[in-house]
Design a protein around this nucleic acid. Structure first.
Lengths: 242, 242
DNA sequence: AGAGGGCTTTGACCGAAATCAAGGCATTGG
DNA sequence: CCAATGCCTTGATTTCGGTCAAAGCCCTCT
């Protein structure tokens, strides 16, 4: 299980009874007693790539920690056009507190494992523990920041800057060891070309052409359509449009 | 003073001592004693269009309620390209809790009046009153929703759909009486063409051409470059791409 | 009133990305 | 083993929106 290092790691890692993983997402906010109570109601799921998470009757009334894999959040237009509006990596928290009017879909981009809690127990715990709500606020602020960062990418960057920015973002999330010093890194793309296009507001063909260009110019290598090796992080950064 | 009706109106309107306005933003979350304490430290500002709000030494350490006017939040690329990533209308709350790494600028788009509180008193009050943090979480979730809605617009809509969506959003925020039944509404644009372009990821010229087209097709009228009358809300909605 | 400046409109042209159309390359299953 | 399917790549062509350039409009200041 890959655990990304980020703001959430501030909490003490705690062992969840039901999924036997050290949650660094929500659970870190709870004291041991609360955690025991909560973990009695939790259950671990594994989701196939492509499966819907929200809108599904099974999961609509629950909150989850992402333990591994990548979840994509999408919004669609009535004529079928789609936009990915967020990606959740471990150890992000999944699920909207307080019903929001806007329609949003969540789908597993890769195989995903989740630790789910019934909505009711999370909401009760939120009333009891301000620290949990505080966590949630922090996560929401982080997502807002990411969303705004992508708005700049979507509105103001060229196709090649978009693809470079995307690769950098994935590298930083998948491979926590991404270190500017080594100047190279390697990871599996969690998204298909179609997903990448929906994420960047481009077409499949444009994404493919930009990846090809970067390959021929020696910035990246790609094996089996999925495994990307970045030869020069600094060159990738220069292409991402700062 | 225009007060938009939204989720925040749930709280009891309360009179702020220093600015003598009924805050519906943050203050509604406080009990009378807390409010009195807080309002002693608050002060009312009026900001000219174009003035920076964040980054300014005066206001960098404060939180504010927007009482009237429109504030634009922007992010820039190193070469000068800009993207507006959010608009704050009354009675939105302005200011980021817990320092966030990302660079973001706030600027008055119109004349703006604010009621500001020192960062320290808001943060103290947040520790004392979970209800305040709850408000903040709700506002942040609303902003996240709006940001994601715009990501769809930026990534997947055509220029004319973008402009139509923009006009609809402004109408709904500026003129709370916007009523689908009447099918028409009227308001002053709070943004210049350049701002609209930066909001929609377009150029000034494209924005202008799309507005002209809507004018010639009888969907809107524009007087003095600012005052917009929507002749047919339903036709505008149809153009906004759902 | 007239000059000046800032914002907006309009037109001609161009180019980046979309669309349309084959074709390639894996994996799956008969 | 060969078809079939699902991604992905590549090429030709089109188009939407960007760029460059020139006016027009509106407001302010003298």
């Amino acid at each position: 299980m890959t655990v990304r290092q980020d703001v959430h790691s501030a909490g003490i890692p705690v062992l969840c009874q039901s999924c036997e993983a050290r949650h660094r997402g929500v659970c870190g906010a709870l004291d041991p007693d609360q955690l025991v109570a909560l973990s009695k109601t939790s259950s671990r799921y594994t989701i196939e790539p492509g499966a819907e998470l929200i809108g599904d009757a099974e999961t609509v009334n629950s909150y989850s920690n992402v333990l591994s894999g990548v979840v994509k959040l999408t919004k669609g237009l009535s004529d079928g056009r789609q936009q990915i509006v967020g990606l959740q990596f471990a150890p992000d928290f999944l699920g909207r507190p307080f019903k929001v009017e806007s329609e949003i879909n969540a789908e597993a981009a890769t195989a995903v494992s989740l630790c789910s809690f019934p909505k009711a127990s999370i909401e009760r715990m939120m009333r009891e523990s301000p620290e949990l709500e505080h966590r949630l606020l922090k996560q929401t602020l982080k997502e807002l920041d990411e969303a705004r960062e992508w708005m700049v990418t979507l509105g103001r960057k060229t196709a090649s800057e978009k693809v470079a920015s995307f690769l950098l973002m994935i590298a930083r999330n998948i491979d926590p060891a991404t270190d500017p010093a080594t100047n190279s890194t390697s990871f599996d793309l969690p998204l298909t070309r179609a997903d990448i296009a929906d994420f960047l507001g481009l077409t499949i063909e444009t994404v493919s052409r930009q990846l090809t260009r970067m390959r021929t110019e020696g910035v990246i290598r790609i094996e089996n359509n999925r495994h990307v090796t970045v030869e020069s992080l600094s060159r990738l950064e220069r292409r991402s449009g700062a």
